[in-house]
């Protein structure tokens, strides 16, 4: 399913943090959103998964206006992994995954046999079947992220929105998470902190600064030394990954002006 964001502006507490953003994620593509802290990545994503309403502009899924749907209808099409501190409640991993069925259920949300089978498959797909009865709060960062991806898969969406899914993970876990997301086959819009991970894994990057998209395109076209100096305030050297040929970056401080 194709995700079209067009002319989107988002305001929080009366302050406009995202200005006139237009971008498209083609069906099954992994689209990265990069930018320095406070550039508006999360605000933009929050509006896409409907935690915020747009001040102007639209989000369309294959031509359907996302914000014209009910919250439940929207959640059946689009799942998200928000960047959230987490919960105080001691749910099991299986219970967390089962929450993904909520937009498909009526009444008290009692899971059917089909729901449970679907959740089991989702956990197995992310290699976390053995974690089902473990307490979510006691899982490692990587295990938690797997379980949350399983919850998103159990939601049976067409589009997946990820807000810094690799935060606080060790490097092997970061690579695992991005591989899982890639293998899901869904249309993915992900805010990523690590530019080198973004360069390797994303089909296309959008660079956001001060709430505006300042560059878009394939990673090797977008991640230029000039742009990195201007947007991130670093001096960057571009090198080629010796095996994949993907562009990779080495960073230094910018010389004092």
């Amino acid at each position: 399913m194709r995700l079209d964001i067009s002319g989107l502006s988002v305001a929080v507490a009366g302050q406009r943090l995202v200005h006139d953003v237009t971008l498209t994620a083609g069906s099954g593509r992994l689209i990265g959103l990069v930018g320095p802290n406070g550039s508006g990545k999360s605000t933009l994503l929050r509006c896409v998964y409907r935690a915020l309403r747009p001040a102007a502009g639209t989000v369309h899924l294959d031509g359907t206006d996302l914000h014209a749907l009910t919250a439940r209808e929207a959640a059946r099409l689009l799942a998200a992994l928000p960047q959230e501190a987490g919960t105080d409640f001691d749910f099991t991993a299986a219970e967390v995954v089962a929450m993904g069925r909520l937009p498909h259920q009526r009444g008290s949300g009692r899971p059917s046999a089909a729901d449970r089978a679907l959740c089991d498959r989702a956990l197995a797909r992310v290699g976390a079947a053995h974690l089902a009865e473990r307490g979510f709060l006691r899982l490692s960062g990587g295990e938690k992220q797997r379980v949350l991806i399983a919850r998103a898969l159990a939601q049976e969406p067409q589009v997946l929105v990820l807000d810094e899914p690799t935060n606080h993970l060790d490097i092997a876990q970061q690579l695992d998470v991005l591989a899982l997301v890639r293998d899901s086959g869904l249309t993915v819009l992900a805010a990523l902190h690590d530019l080198n991970l973004a360069a390797v894994h994303c089909d296309e990057l959008h660079v956001i600064a001060d709430g505006r998209i300042v560059a878009s395109g394939p990673p090797h076209d977008v991640l230029t030394a000039e742009l990195l100096a201007e947007v991130f305030g670093v001096r960057a050297h571009r090198v080629r990954h010796p095996e994949t040929g993907a562009v990779q970056l080495l960073f230094d401080r910018l010389p004092a002006a």
Partner: peptide, 19 residues
Amino acid sequence: AGRLNALAMGDETAAALGV
């Protein structure tokens, strides 16, 4: 009950789950 579970995970997650 199902919505309470979603809310317990945080407002953002609740919103993403259609609550």
